[in-house]
Simulated assay, not measured.
Amino acid sequence: MSVPSTAAAGGSQVKSALRTVELLEFFARRPGMHSLAEVQAALSYPKSSLYMLLRTLVELGWVETDGTGTRYGIGVRALLVGASYIDGDEAVAAARPVLDRLADDTTETIHFARLDGTDVVYLSTRQSQHSLRPFTRVGRRLPAHATSLGKALLATHTDDQVRQLLPERLEAVTEHTITDRERLIEELRTVQEHGYAVDREENTAGLRCFGIAVPYRSPARDAVSCSVPVARLTPGREQMIRDALFDARDRLTLACRHL
């Protein structure tokens, strides 16, 4: 009788681990419940292997099912791990008083986010004091090219690095989103010149955002932004927000200098 080699067993374990991570990332990017057929179509795993993996993750609490037991979504264990990441992140902790002050100074929605591949992920938010305000939540993931946060961070990279990171054609989130990589690179040069980035309704219609990178690392990995409904934005208010962001950047850089 042949015995599986240690290398073969190890390869199988690695493959299983990769599939587990890919499956959890699938659910993280697609909120709600999904059928086995939907998941299989997206990930192309063998149906029997996928079913067994899903059942295991359900038993462990990483995946949940609906009342019928045939649809699947992200489980509460993932929330616990995500929360522990935020709670243990030193940059998030150092940023808290700066974000509080920025929110008070602007009375608008504030985001602190990190570049993760081609996306930005919200690590901390402060809600606007106004009734007309955008929906925000920690853990939200958005395409970097369609946000002021992402453009501010991409601008700390070289043109070639941006070309390696992003495809030639970019996803259109709204009708205003820049979808051509070379046009985006041209705008990133303007961001470098001015020191801040602007999202002109490129991610959410009716919303303008101003973002600035926090250069405690190079290239920068974190940025802060202020989101304002276009209806509430005047030239004077825009200048005030930019000034407040530059002040916040300096304070954040100082607070994170040891990281």
Rank of each mutant, 00 (worst) to 15 (best):
S2E: 13
S2Y: 10
S2I: 15
S5E: 07
S5H: 04
A9K: 13
G10H: 14
G11A: 13
V14T: 10
K15I: 12
S16M: 09
R19N: 11
R19K: 11
V21W: 02
E22L: 14
L23T: 01
L23Y: 06
E25T: 12
A28S: 10
A28F: 11
A28Y: 09
R29K: 13
P31H: 06
G32T: 03
H34V: 00
L36A: 08
A37S: 14
A42N: 01
P46D: 10
K47Q: 13
L53V: 03
L54P: 02
T56G: 10
L57C: 03
L60I: 04
G61R: 00
G61T: 08
E64W: 00
T65K: 10
D66N: 14
G69E: 09
G69I: 13
I74E: 04
I74G: 05
G75M: 09
R77P: 05
G82N: 10
S84N: 04
D87E: 14
G88H: 09
G88T: 09
G88K: 04
A91D: 01
A95C: 04
A95Y: 09
V98M: 02
V98A: 06
R101W: 06
T106P: 01
T109A: 11
T109S: 11
I110L: 08
I110N: 07
T118Y: 04
T118M: 09
T118S: 11
Y122T: 14
S124K: 07
S124D: 15
Q127E: 15
Q127Y: 12
S128G: 01
Q129V: 14
P134H: 07
P134L: 07
T136Q: 11
T136D: 06
V138M: 07
R141S: 14
P143S: 03
A144F: 01
S148W: 02
L149V: 13
L153S: 07
L154F: 02
L154S: 04
A155H: 08
T156N: 09
T158C: 02
V162Q: 06
R163D: 04
Q164D: 15
L170E: 12
T177R: 09
T179L: 07
D180K: 02
D180W: 06
D180H: 05
E182P: 08
R183E: 13
L184Q: 07
I185W: 10
I185F: 12
E186V: 12
E186S: 09
E186Q: 11
E186W: 06
V191M: 03
Q192Y: 05
H194V: 12
G195A: 04
D199W: 01
E201S: 15
N203M: 07
A205K: 14
A205F: 10
L207Y: 00
L207E: 11
R208L: 14
R208H: 11
R208F: 10
P215N: 08
S218T: 12
R221G: 08
D222S: 08
V224C: 00
S227G: 08
R232Y: 06
G236Y: 10
E238D: 09
M240Y: 11
I241E: 00
I241G: 02
D243P: 06
A244L: 02
L245K: 04
L245M: 07
F246Q: 02
A248V: 03
R249S: 00
D250A: 13
R251P: 03
L254Q: 14
L254E: 13
A255R: 05
R257H: 12
